[in-house]
Design a binder for these strands. Sequence first.
RNA 1: GGGCCCGUAGCUCAGUGGUCAGAGCAGUGGACUUUUAAUCCAUCGGUCCUGGGUUCGAAUCCCAGUGGGCCCA
Length: 489
Amino acid sequence: MPSEQEMIQQRLDKRARLLQAADPYPARVRRTHTTAAAVEAFTAGGEVEGATEVTVVGRVTAQRVMGKAAFLDLRDGSGRLQLHFRRDVLDDFEHLSLVDLGDFLEVTGSMFRTRTGEVTVGVASWRVITKALRPLPEKWHGLTDTEARYRQRYLDLIANERSREIARSRSIIVSAIRQFFLDRGFLEVETPVLQEHAGGAAARPFLTHHNALDRDLFMRISLELHLKRLLVGGFEKVFEIGRVFRNEGVSYRHNPEFTLLESYEAYADYHDVAAMVEELLGFVAMRVHGTTEFNHGDVSLSLKTPFARTTYHGALLEHTGIDYRQYPTTAALLGVARARNVPVSDGASWATILDGLMSTFVEPKLVQPTFIFDYPTALSPLAKKKVDDEDTVERFELFALGYEIANAYSELNDPVDQRERMEAQSAKQVEGDDEVEVADEDFLVAIEHGMPPAGGLGIGVDRVVQLITGEHSLREVILFPTMRDRGDE
RNA sequence: GGGCCCGUAGCUCAGUGGUCAGAGCAGUGGACUUUUAAUCCAUCGGUCCUGGGUUCGAAUCCCAGUGGGCCCA
């Protein structure tokens, strides 16, 4: 019999023996203090031995048994507290042999300080409130196997304080973002995940099927087109924090589902949005770090306003010497890319090649937060063209630590222009490029009713968490990242 | 997409062609009434990721696959 099975069987036997005395999984437990509050109450009360009675609950994380006495460590959400069991005090002392690391206990007793100085509960009564059947990771080295940490995140959270800290930071970040927008009078909304067309971005969607309607539906790849419908409907400031799904590879940089924030503000333009993004990131950093300047390893990052600003054309010129306007045809630009050893897939469009140059030579250099303004029209079918230059649109992206954090436009609201550009994208799809914007007739009809001028914003929330926590891998900031099949079950 | 590294007990890891694959922690049995990585004695526990191949002999070498990580694009 495999040893893991043996250990489980031993614990099942203990569970059965516990059951003879009392249910080791009671529905109701008593708790007068968290472990942190118990220590606090003891010290606040002048550390008088026997004066502070507490009932605490938590998980057993260590056992030091010495014949007629035992010390156990109990951990709850607030911290850790030592328990002291004595045979001369407890008539059920022998039942401690039925307790394993990982079990949950409810313990009542009075606080004292041991001669080695540790605040401890002298246990007067106790019971098991959850019997665990499987062993936890090793107490000293914990769980380091990356794969196990992702696949069994609960074990990672038990074993690694850093993982708990990232999860807490993420929660603070998301609630800070929400508060930031609510404070500015934005309305938080929820729009459909299941859509007839997966629009608003260029990405492969997931396809699913509605049985009752006998109809194929796509999972959304962005929030954009429905939020814009709400601008048509008269809301002036809306935002959504939502999960989107892109049917692409998995790696430390990409997860097929990720969290996107989008906001739309009527009567604002992309410069207004840029100013708001600066404030937003500073606000979030203050909430987590208490400062806008912090270090990640040897990189010191400043989210202090204002961020650096450059243009798409200027940034590419600066980092590569390439003036892309000199290469207006696909063939010409392809020659430039090949000369620089940038791999280009067959049939790549002019816009795709240009994007490849940017992501190869410019983006990795952008460590401190940097706005890149004014993108080529061909890359941005939903952004408004510049007044004096129809090959360029009012769009910026924000980069930091070498990756994209935010993307924003002065939103295209001319329905005629919008229709032409969506149809041009659809034509590319017919040519075989499956990562293009899809024409959404229902959306076009909506904006034909009139969508006010607006500034729109998209921010990858997972990326913001990476930026603020300094985590290199997306899989560290997503609690349950998508993993491949282990293939053994 | 390409390159490199890794996968051995529940966990953390040794073991680079030669007896029956090891240690620590965890588990089990014993000693121990202020320990805290408790200590001491004894002991159980293995699909060496999977499948092929080379060899008298493979955890170890080779090939393929698979899962993970890192780097490059």
